[in-house]
Amino acid sequence: MSTVVGVVVFPGTNCEMDAVEAVNGLGGTGRLLWHGDDDLSGVDAVIVPGGFAHGDYLRPGAIARFSPAMAAVARFAVDGGPVLGICNGFQVLTEAGLLPGALQKNRGLKFLCRPTTVRVETTESSLTGSAVAGAELSIPINHFEGNYTCDMSTLQQLRDEDRIVLRYVGNPNGSIDDIAGICNEARNVVGLMPHPERACSELLGSTDGEVLIRSLLAAAA
């Protein structure tokens, strides 16, 4: 039985098929989950993908966190299930309180859509278990509100607990401490702004995202 990864779809989500494609290409089974359903049975891991859930109205992720699927995702996370939030999915996870901090508008005035280099800072997370610490990966970003921020005590806690999973090499958006991705205390919930699912094919210019998606599949198995 291959590992089933549920991919949550909100109105306005637009990266769900990229996620399913990446999972399927690495031997898993991607399964779309409508945000109005709260049934995660049979799912081994969850991806909250990128896009503009509920049009990003009010704030990115602010309305999405009230969807029935998110209550189920929160229970799944508490039970130790691997949960990955990519881009808008990261914003949803912070709004839902599953990850600390918030994503503010990019430093500078631009929507950024380009490859970035990120460094693996820890292999102790559901996203990096199969990666090598210190490895630099080419993964694209595609966001306007990807500038991670948090108060200083939260930042200190993230550092002390080794919860900064990925850092940018050449900070593109002003994120505090070059943060590209973080995890929760239990290390099973990870959020990141770059799109590893879009770096799983030579055709797309990089396969560096594969090790991250493979790590998620391994964490789910």
Binding site: Q104, N106, R107, G108, L109, T149
Partner: peptide, 13 residues
């Protein structure tokens, strides 16, 4: 309002 120190590209523009 955005808190002090939070990026405000619309205001800056």
């Amino acid at each position: 309002r955005l808190r002090d120190g939070i990026s405000d590209p619309a205001g800056a523009t």
